[in-house]
Design a protein around this nucleic acid. Sequence first.
DNA 1: ATTTGTCGAGTGAAAAATGAAGGATATATT
DNA 2: AATATATCCTTCATTTTTCACTCGACAAAT
Lengths: 210, 210
Amino acid sequence: MKQNPSKQKVIKAASTLFFQKGFHGTSVRDIAERASVNVSSISYYFNSKQGLLEYAVTNYYEDYLSSIEKTLNETNLLTPMDKLHSLISTIIQYKQNNFQLTCFIQRELSLDSVFVREMTVTYLAKENFYLKKTFFDLLGKRLKSDYKQYLFMQLKGMLITPYILHNDWKNQVVGDYSRQLFVKKYVRVIKDWLDFIVMSSEDIKRKAVN
Amino acid sequence: MKQNPSKQKVIKAASTLFFQKGFHGTSVRDIAERASVNVSSISYYFNSKQGLLEYAVTNYYEDYLSSIEKTLNETNLLTPMDKLHSLISTIIQYKQNNFQLTCFIQRELSLDSVFVREMTVTYLAKENFYLKKTFFDLLGKRLKSDYKQYLFMQLKGMLITPYILHNDWKNQVVGDYSRQLFVKKYVRVIKDWLDFIVMSSEDIKRKAVN
DNA sequence: ATTTGTCGAGTGAAAAATGAAGGATATATT
DNA sequence: AATATATCCTTCATTTTTCACTCGACAAAT
């Protein structure tokens, strides 16, 4: 499983630079220099700059979806709430472990390109499916479908916010310890919100019965 | 107030293309072609591609901050909750009216460049200050400062989510009518959340007294 | 007549991609 | 074990493409 060190070095350098300057804002020379390899190596391993991007992103999402699927399997017997809670925890954990790529991909995905559309159908659709199913299982059939959509958007927003507003947090979250602490606390904050919407949707149900 | 049509055409074309392909992913030729003007016009009006960017973004933020300040002045006598509610409404409204630029700027702001840092100190700092003050006034001194920070991040996340996950919504929100409807409904969803956190923070206070 | 705006051609720099050659390492052959 | 061979990796030099920006001429408006 131990890959070629150069190849790995390139990916690492690319992740950092793409994160800082974006895909188009980074040149292959920059990447090569940062990785301390020759420019041509990049063509050799990935054919092109685009190839490098695709390799990195594909890897990221393959792993990401595996984690999600694993969690869903392992939590099959739990309550909907516990299941969703585990899922959220897994997602935030993964994103935290792949911080730079997460930020970069999140940003790049809001573009309009062939590549983005491809990623959307192959990976994002799945992620969305899993998350939506788990979330809607929790909500049940109480709320209006329209309102549920908005709540779902709110949930998705919470899962990406730290990786878009990372500039707001870089001063506070530093080092491995505080990074793990962040995961714990942030998942807790989302959990509070979940408890609230479940509670208030039960209120609605109760009112409907009376 | 009626500006040169060419200049406006360029800005409009640039907004669209920057939104779709990003700043570095768009060439001045692309912009010129889409705006049906000669390439040289862009240098003529804005000196450089960077100048065009700065012009657009500066305009955007000047207007944005004015709206915010206006709202804050007009709502001075209201309760903290109503004040924050108005502010949120104004913000979402403005972003919705400048949809493409909002999405673009939001994305570009997560980069690491001199320009971003400049925008941060001149505009974002102010926005943050206003929002934070209004939000913290509402929360009072009940909650732990740490937890308040997380809630504030959650709020900020809600204000940007629709402009990052816009791909998720472009099928549902089309046309002016549904756009206005969106503003109304989305602000409502945020308001529900605000009610919740205020309510639960009062719970904590009550428990502390007993 | 002077300012203001438009246009096409052109320049130089930057960046991506290519291709051939050399070196290292592993595998096979005697 | 020693040599030959094939495969993988790295490097340098070069080509091709893309792109931002300039220049000078021309037209329109004031």
